[in-house]
Design a protein around this nucleic acid. Sequence first.
DNA 1: ATACGATTTTTTTTT
DNA 2: AAAATCGTAT
Length: 657
Amino acid sequence: MVDYGKELNPEQLQVVMATGGPILVIAGAGSGKTRTITYRVARLIESGVRPENVLLATFTNKAAREMLGRVEMLTGIDISRLWGGTFHHIANLILRRAGYLLGYNSNYSIIDSEDSRQLINTCISELGIDSGSEKFPKGNVIGDIISLSINTGDSIDKVVTKRNPYFYNRIDKIEGVASRYQTRKKELNVMDFDDLLINLRRLLVGFPDVLKEYSGRLRHVLVDEYQDTNLIQAEILDLLASHHRNLMVVGDDSQSIYSFRGANFANIIKFSDKYPDAKIFRLETNYRSTPEILNLANMSIVNNERQFKKSLKAVRSGGIRPVLAPAENVIQQANFVAQRVLELISEDISLGEIAVLYRAHYHSMELQMELTRRGIPFEIRSGIRFFEQAHIKDVTSFMRIMVNPFDELAWKRLLMLYRNVGKVTAERIWKFISAQADPLSAVLSDDFLKCVSKKVGAGLEKFRKLIKNLVDSTDSKTPAEIIETVLGSGYHEYLQERYTDIESREEDLNQLGNFSRKFNSLENFLSELALLTNMDEDEDRADRDKDKIILSTIHQAKGLEWSAVFMIWCSDGMIPLARSLKEPEGEEEERRLFYVAATRAKDQLYFCYPLIDYKRGMGNTVLSPSRFIEELTPSSPTAANRLYDQWIVNYSSNFYE
DNA sequence: ATACGATTTTTTTTT
DNA sequence: AAAATCGTAT
């Protein structure tokens, strides 16, 4: 048995030992939130709750795996039947089984944002909207509008009024595109990320038997990062927990940073209105950071109006003050970080204990060059996801059409890989094969050649051979073998023609094959892949190496910690990002982002920004430090009241020779 | 008409 | 770095 009293502090122990009913836990940064949830699950299991009666909703699948792994170690009980993972993951599990009630075939594909954008663009042209002469939003913009409308529960009209007023005169057409997009997805038997959530809610609301089955089964529902749930997710939780009412939500309103995808921290603030009998617990002891770092973070977040007042207390003893380091320009900023990293290494701090955080992916460009130049190993935790890379999507598209032969997007993608096949030809072919009962055999039929020119037909011979090969063996071939077959059928040559870095791309495909071994069906494999997060992925990387510094967006750094953290591009306009300030309550959200970044640091925290930036069309621009730093500056700084030290960074200009 | 290559633009954050 | 746009070749 686990000795809970010994392994937890009194605050944590209360949460772990609490009996049922609704529970709200306000857990400050670094307060041992994950530990608390883990031990609570362990206690539930030890006290006899069966694993299949527990649901643990987390922000990444990796977080769930890690927590559940710990639980298994603590209790020694097999908990593989416990449900854990992201909302999308859980929704997918239920929809594969019960989605037919909503008219979905259980072999539906999950599409990512690229597919979604393309489908919306198709809808725009199908509706005959001339997006050239009249200014009309592009696929990705409409996609964002639709998604935000769904996730916040606001109408499209309201979203456009609020966020894209300059398109308001096109509102009818935007709504038309949205409804066509909806129809088209259904036709293709695909769901996008939002559909997973929406459809789960529809299922639970509209089908009492389904609700009864799942809410009856789930005796305990636990939720991590509750501050980043949106309206639909909160409703799903209410429904799933409606029978037993044992709903425990854990979160920190100060760390709510996902409002752009509909997250609403009113969920956490209003939890006790919804559940008046909710017990409220607070975890306010910070084990992570030095008092200097924590003090700065606390002084920053108090500038926000809307929040739970809390006082995070440091238990660690004093360290060094955070540092503000302005650099002459972007190159010098990169230079400073690289130089300081080398110094830290010489002080015996390991590379894996150092991270550089920034607001947007492209902020790290110069730093990447500088680190490469100096031979400092680094790992980037941002940018496109593994699954979204072109070569991965090419190969998995073959699997997608095997599972769901009406996956128009996958078909078109594949067709356009071949010579002389562009948008128009792909469309013509799709029209032909989708009219047949079975598109796969339509491609193989002799009639197929009639719908394309001789030249194109000849070019597609290889494609037909490959499809035949795959159709004949789809039940016997593993995903890894499918990848092998595709590579051998000419894709290898295609990669050579198209890209310069084929080695790393083929290595990616190998890893894809490795990863696929964990799954018992092609279908499961594809949906897991589509729902894989950036954070999940690195666990499966063979070259995972603790001896690299981490470069990451602040969003991706959520929940993590490092001994030394550098925040680059801390200039006003970047953090807060000028564009975000236009959003309602944008500034407060950006301040929370700043807070999240600062509280990742255990021992050392550096804010960097370039004094001069070159902006195209504007020449050199002089930048000022972030307002979040300015507001922390006492009017008459003394040694005692300063929250940070300022360093003068002055390297003789050694540009790249 | 269509495909494809060259050029230009444009970067928030993510399931 | 990737997507969108533009212009040329087939």
